[in-house]
Amino acid sequence: MTISEEEIIHIAKLSSLNLSKEEIKKYTVDMQEILEFANMINNVNTEGMDETIATNKKSNVMRKDEVVKFENQELLLQNAPSQDEGMFRIPKVLN
């Protein structure tokens, strides 16, 4: 199994990352090496095994859907790179 630079470019696009030419080269080599190593999991017989989603067997924890007011709105918005009147500012999406 080999990974091509085109595949890395495709995956980077899916990940919303721009990669430089050097990064594409480096990550192609790295992915190749890491996945070759990871392929050893194919030596494990997993017939009839469930997937481990959580180790402590908890699933679908329910609670009432209640609105809780977040008290620190100002501090929350201070972290926004751009904000205006309690809202996040982004560039125009629709033309």
Partner: peptide, 9 residues
């Protein structure tokens, strides 16, 4: 999916 099964093993 395979890795999650290996986890179970």
């Amino acid at each position: 999916k395979k890795a999650q099964k290996v986890r179970t093993v």
